[in-house]
């Protein structure tokens, strides 16, 4: 028996998860016994209730909403459509390219491909420059009331509420506070208790922090506002640092030495400056996408740039 590389392997003829998203209608294929509408509705109903119940328990949200699944007999009544109420707060859309790939990574000694992060000051300087260039007048570090803030006391407790209503300091606002800007850094992710710590290597998913936690901050906000969350793109080096390590015929101790050598070398190669430059470019794109949204909704006049 031998260890032998497979050089010619026919690509599997079934899609991976990313590919299946291109044809989402395939997901409509249901096992026969799920096809009975009443059973399916019952499953979905319980599933929704269960999810709501668990979510409510997690956040100790007292506004527990009971969802009544309409039965087949009285489904006609469910056709009554209520007038949509425009919410007070509108969240800026996140740049699709950024949402698909950026803002994710794992740090720490056991991280396999640690990304580079921007300091808050680097990021805020860029955001300020780009927005003022577009014609927005900004105030710095503004405290806003009626925000669902992370509850520091709940860090190690399961019984205490994870958030409390209070004042939270946002990075920038427009003069009238109708536009609120926040840059989501790793520190913010930690503050909002969304880091997924795996041993000594904390993992981050910043778009998830925005979607699942930070937007909730405005649940009880009484004023009209447009809120933009920009996040650190967390650009990763192209190669895993051990990519070129040749370990053939060496023992465990020598491998340790090799790791140190390779680690050092690869980090040097993936010049940090280059990665920061790339991070800034990606953040600039996020800001430009937001400016476009403000201009399209006529919340910001289009300024001519030379």
């Amino acid at each position: 028996m031998k260890i032998r590389k497979v050089t010619n392997y026919k690509a599997p003829n079934y899609p991976n998860l990313t590919q299946i998203l291109e044809t989402p209608e395939i997901m409509n294929k249901l096992p026969k016994r799920w096809q009975s509408p009443s059973k399916w509705m019952m499953i979905m109903g319980i599933s929704t209730l269960l999810t709501r119940y668990l979510a409510a328990e997690e956040t100790t949200d007292s506004n527990f909403e009971v969802i009544v699944v309409p039965s087949e007999e009285n489904s006609e009544t469910s056709e009554k459509i209520e007038e949509p109420v425009e919410p007070n707060v509108q969240f800026a859309k996140i740049l699709p390219e950024a949402l698909a790939k950026d803002g994710r990574g794992t740090f720490g000694c056991v991280a396999m491909n640690p990304p580079t992060f921007l300091s808050e000051s680097e990021a805020l300087e860029l955001i300020y420059t780009e927005l003022t260039k577009a014609g927005l007048k900004l105030k710095e570090d503004v405290k806003i009331d009626n925000i669902e803030c992370p509850n520091e006391d709940a860090r190690w407790s399961r019984s205490k509420p994870k958030t409390i209503v209070g004042k939270y300091s946002f990075d920038y606002t427009s003069n009238d506070k109708s536009i609120i800007i926040e840059f989501v850094s790793l520190k913010d992710a930690k503050n909002w208790k969304m880091s997924n710590t795996m041993s000594s290597a904390p993992s981050y998913n910043l778009p998830k922090v925005v979607d699942e936690q930070m937007k909730k901050a405005f649940d009880n906000y009484p004023e009209k506002a447009t809120v933009a969350f920009f996040f650190d793109p967390l650009v990763k080096p192209k190669r895993r640092w051990w990519g070129g390590a040749n370990t053939k015929g060496i023992d465990d101790n020598e491998v340790e030495e090799l790791i140190n050598k390779e680690f050092g070398k690869k980090r040097e190669q993936n010049s940090k400056k280059e990665l920061i430059k790339k991070s800034k470019e990606k953040l600039r794109q996020q800001v430009a996408y937001f400016v476009k949204q403000l201009q399209e909704s006529e919340k910001l006049a289009i300024t001519e740039t030379k």
Binding site: I3, K5, V6, T7, N8, Y9, C109, V110, M112, S199, S200, W242, G243, A245, N246, T247, K248, D252, V255, E256, L258, I259
Partner: peptide, 25 residues
């Protein structure tokens, strides 16, 4: 937990074995 030793073992395990490099699987 001895984080250093934990890291060492993790990293040793994660190094791509030369005999596997380039294998389709």
């Amino acid at each position: 937990l001895q984080n250093k030793r934990q890291c060492e073992l993790f990293q040793m395990n994660e190094v791509t074995k030369s005999e596997c490099r380039g294998c389709a699987l």
